[in-house]
Design a binder for these strands. Structure first.
Lengths: 135, 135
DNA sequence: AATGGGGTTCCAGTTACTGGAAGGTCAAGG
DNA sequence: CCTTGACCTTCCAGTAACTGGAACCCCATT
């Protein structure tokens, strides 16, 4: 199949599929006219990548996961470790975002939001918090 | 003050401070020897940026916030709107991450994590879910 | 004069694509 | 036979917000 079909079948943009080839993730054969020719196995790997990426794995993680997938002697423990590490980093990000959100929510609640210049949000950013939000 | 002092006083790496100058955020004067000379106002803006960035505002948002901060005729409503929009985008990110985390947690729970190759995580990525996690 | 700790510029790399330009290929229609 | 349109190709540049490193200058001290 051509790249357009592979794109539709995998849900990945053609640009992305070419990019994955550039970085050596999925390397299709070429037809006489230079067109890329994707096999069922290629498509399978593209779908694998789409799914792994949608779960937030980095490209390098995806590369490892693909190679584990292709290795019949892998240990599932290795995969599990990667997934757990990934969960941990997701949790970290969530915690960071929650922190930001809480701070912002407090500031938003304190801001009148009218047409006057007085603004606790800017005051906080400027380090001139009045309402004791800092410390 | 020189960039090193500004860096220590603002908590921003010198590299970052130079970058902020490149993109026109904080433009210090120069001494005869070419060194950057930061005033109290400059330092104040650097701290403002550090705080705003730590709350997750983009550089372009920071630029707007700084200009609102410097505009004595601003309306606090404008700032509040930006903060609320930012909270909304943070919430979106959190929701995405929570979704990933939930899926991954399910997969991790299903994976033995031993030295055998059988691995529900890889099966899921490959679209061969057995346990009904998909659909 | 040499040393060490500043400072300077500029270039390249990071992540994972995305957009766009310039051009080749192919099947269908007039 | 030619054109049209959809599809494909490569290559270059840009995104966000820095970060690392090289090569070099400045200044105070030993």
């Amino acid at each position: 199949m051509n790249i357009g079909q592979a794109s539709r079948a995998s849900g990945l943009p053609a640009k992305t599929i070419r990019y994955y080839e550039d970085i050596g993730l999925v390397e299709p054969a070429r037809r006489g006219n230079g067109y890329r020719a994707y096999s069922g196995a290629h498509l399978h790997n593209l779908r694998f990548l789409a799914r792994a990426r949608s779960l937030g794995f980095s490209i390098e993680d995806c590369r490892k996961l693909l190679s584990l997938y292709g290795d019949s002697h892998r240990a599932s423990a290795d995969v599990k470790k990667m997934a757990q590490a990934h969960i941990a980093s997701i949790e970290e990000k969530i915690a960071q975002l929650e922190g930001m959100k809480a701070t912002l929510a407090g500031l938003v609640a304190a801001c009148h939001g009218d047409d006057l210049p007085d603004c606790p949000i800017l005051d906080d950013l400027a380090g001139e918090a009045v309402g004791g939000i800092h410390e």
